[in-house]
Amino acid sequence: KLLSSIEQACDICRLKKLKCSKEKPKCAKCLKNNWECRYSPKTKRSPLTRAHLTEVESRLERLE
């Protein structure tokens, strides 16, 4: 599967780190437990900047 097509777990399953069936409108866990089942939009991760990478590398060197 391509990364862009990976389905996201519902908010509660993601928060509780449960295996989500990803069914809509309610996944199996939410249906069974009568929880409100919501699927928040995916958040875009910002790409690493060179400055951040350099900072992490220098912190790693100090720890070694």
Rank of each mutant, 00 (worst) to 15 (best):
A28L: 10
E36W: 07
K22M: 07
T49W: 03
L53C: 07
R38S: 14
L31C: 12
A28G: 09
R59L: 05
D11W: 03
K32W: 07
K29I: 04
K1W: 03
L18W: 11
E64K: 10
L2E: 14
K17Y: 06
H52E: 07
L15T: 11
I6W: 13
P47N: 01
S5H: 10
K24E: 14
A9G: 10
R62F: 11
A51L: 12
L60W: 00
C37H: 01
S5D: 14
P47H: 04
E64R: 08
E64Y: 15
S40Y: 06
E57S: 06
R45E: 06
Q8E: 03
N34A: 14
A51V: 15
R38P: 05
C37N: 00
V56K: 01
E61I: 12
R45V: 00
C37S: 03
K19R: 14
K44N: 11
S46A: 07
K44C: 11
A51H: 10
S40I: 06
E36M: 12
T49S: 05
V56T: 10
L3N: 09
Q8G: 08
K22A: 03
C30Y: 05
L15W: 13
W35D: 12
D11V: 07
E23C: 13
K26Y: 12
S58N: 12
R14G: 04
P41E: 11
K17G: 03
R14N: 03
R50N: 00
R45A: 00
E7Y: 04
L15H: 10
H52S: 06
L2F: 08
L48F: 05
R38L: 15
H52P: 00
K42M: 12
S5P: 08
K26N: 15
R62P: 08
L18P: 07
E7P: 09
S40W: 03
P47D: 08
E55G: 11
E36K: 12
K44P: 13
L18D: 00
S46E: 01
K32P: 03
Y39S: 04
E7V: 09
L63Q: 00
K29T: 07
L15Y: 15
K26R: 14
K19E: 03
R38N: 15
S46P: 11
E36V: 14
K22D: 04
N33F: 11
R45W: 01
K26G: 14
S5Q: 08
E23D: 13
L3D: 15
E57D: 06
I12L: 09
N33L: 13
A9D: 03
R50Q: 05
R59K: 10
L63T: 01
K42L: 12
I12F: 15
D11H: 04
E7N: 09
T43F: 08
A28R: 14
K44T: 12
K1E: 03
C37K: 01
C27I: 02
S21W: 02
T49K: 03
K24I: 14
R14D: 03
C30M: 05
E64M: 13
A9P: 03
S40R: 06
C10I: 02
Y39Q: 07
L53E: 08
K32H: 12
L60F: 09
S4H: 11
E61A: 10
L31Q: 11
Q8M: 10
S40E: 04
K44F: 08
P47K: 08
L31T: 10
P47F: 00
P25G: 09
L2S: 14
C10M: 04
K42G: 09
K29L: 09
C20I: 06
C10V: 02
N34V: 10
R62K: 09
R50L: 07
S4A: 14
I12D: 12
L60H: 04
E7C: 10
P41Q: 09
E7D: 12
L60Y: 13
L63K: 01
C27G: 01
C20N: 02
K16M: 00
E36A: 13
L18V: 03
T54N: 09
A51Q: 12
D11G: 03
S58R: 09
W35L: 14
Y39I: 06
I12Y: 13
S58W: 13
K22N: 06
C30F: 03
P41S: 08
L48M: 05
L31D: 15
L31F: 14
E64Q: 14
T43L: 13
N34M: 13
K16W: 04
K26V: 10
E64D: 08
R38D: 13
Q8A: 11
K17D: 02
E36S: 13
K29W: 00
C37W: 02
P41W: 04
S4E: 14
C30V: 05
C27P: 05
N34Q: 14
E64F: 04
L48S: 03
S21P: 08
S21I: 03
T49H: 05
C27L: 01
S5Y: 10
R50Y: 05
L48W: 06
R14K: 10
L63F: 13
L53R: 07
L63P: 02
L53G: 00
R50K: 01
P25C: 02
P25V: 03
C10Y: 05
I6T: 11
K26P: 03
H52C: 05
S40F: 05
K19S: 06
L53S: 00
R50T: 04
Q8S: 12
S40T: 09
P47R: 10
R59Y: 04
L53P: 05
P41A: 10
R62Y: 07
S58M: 12
L3I: 11
K24A: 14
E36I: 09
S4F: 13
K24M: 13
C20T: 04
Q8F: 14
C20H: 02
T43W: 03
K19A: 09
L3K: 01
K24R: 12
K26C: 13
A9I: 08
R45K: 08
K17C: 04
L60I: 11
A9K: 02
S4P: 10
S21R: 02
S4C: 11
S58C: 15
T49Q: 06
L63C: 11
L18S: 10
K26F: 15
A51E: 08
K44E: 07
Q8I: 07
K44A: 15
S21Y: 02
T54Q: 11
R62A: 15
L15P: 00
P41H: 07
K44S: 09
L15Q: 07
C30G: 05
L31G: 14
L63H: 02
Y39F: 09
C20Y: 06
C20Q: 04
K32V: 11
N34C: 15
E64I: 11
H52N: 08
L48K: 06
S40N: 05
H52T: 00
E61K: 10
T49F: 04
L3S: 08
K32E: 06
R50S: 07
D11M: 05
L31N: 14
C20E: 04
T43I: 15
P41R: 05
C13A: 01
D11E: 04
H52R: 09
E64C: 10
R45L: 04
L15K: 09
